[in-house]
């Protein structure tokens, strides 16, 4: 392996077909190998780079696995208290309407403790992008049950599987925010295959472009894996995601141009 990467003679401009986007820093990602966060970060960074808005974008990191997101994006960023990212983003965008503002949040952050901030920012129609990574579990704290944990799914706080009679039901925040008049675009994507990555990138690009329209929140959910939290290998985790997460959290556009799809 090392041998291949240590051959400077092959590192020539004509051989360069792929490189790190400049909107990502050189810091080593803190995510587990196989986790979807890295890909999602890259897509957001590529969109910022391609739109030429690196100096006009302010991001908000959550509490959760992506709490250190500010170490990886080479843009100005703020780190929010747990669940409050949409409140920060609201103020940033209202005070700097010309800037591009996004939050990057996990499911515990956005769909449990931050439910109120999410719903009200969406309902007010704040002109921001919300990137929502849903892996059905609290990853950073060690795999506890999340608001998005599937029925029957085992976690460290639902060790015998989520019993909905005792522990309640998983929450589909994306469908909820789609019903609010303040959301302009709501979509659910994934990043587990090259095809899915291309679609997700298109959605993220559209979400950022929408900020120029001043028509409300663009909300992009990315259903992702958590191989360490799910106690599966990256490959098995992706299979489990396709077989279990996707039937419950169906991929596709839910609201486009302010209109519910279907």
């Amino acid at each position: 392996m090392t041998e291949t990467f240590d051959k400077p003679e092959i590192r020539t401009p004509e051989n360069l077909v792929y490189s790190k986007t400049k909107v990502l820093t050189d810091n080593v990602l803190s995510y587990c190998p196989g986790c979807g966060h890295g890909t999602a970060h890259r897509l957001v960074a590529e969109v910022i780079d391609e739109m030429g808005i690196q100096n006009d974008t302010i991001g908000v990191a959550p509490v959760g696995c992506s709490v250190l997101a500010y170490n990886f994006f080479d843009i100005d960023m703020q780190q929010a208290a747990h669940g409050r990212a949409p409140a920060l983003a609201t103020a940033i965008k209202r005070l700097y309407p010309g800037k591009f503002v996004f939050t990057y949040q996990g499911d515990g952050d956005l769909a449990a403790i931050g439910t109120a901030e999410t719903i009200h920012a969406c309902n007010r129609g704040e002109n921001i992008v919300i990137i929502f990574i849903n892996n059905g579990i609290y990853g950073m704290t060690g795999g506890q049950m999340a608001p998005t944990t599937l029925p029957g799914m085992p976690t460290s706080t639902s060790p015998y599987g989520r019993d909905t009679h005792i522990m309640g039901n998983p929450l589909k925040m994306t469908e909820i925010v789609a019903t609010l008049p303040g959301t302009y675009m709501v979509t659910r994507q994934a990043v587990h295959t090259p095809a899915a990555v291309r679609k997700a990138k298109k959605a993220i690009r559209m979400a950022f472009e929408n900020q120029k329209l001043d028509k409300g929140v663009s909300f992009v959910e990315i259903v992702s894996n958590c191989n360490s939290g799910w106690k599966l290998s990256p490959v098995k985790a992706n299979e489990w995601m396709v077989n279990n997460m996707f039937p419950f959290y169906q991929l596709g556009d839910i609201k486009m141009n302010g209109e519910l799809v279907k």
Partner: peptide
Amino acid sequence: LQAESEVAAINMVYGGAAC
């Protein structure tokens, strides 16, 4: 802006102050 809660309001202050 009338926020949805005192919690949201102080976090809006955080976001604005950080700018």
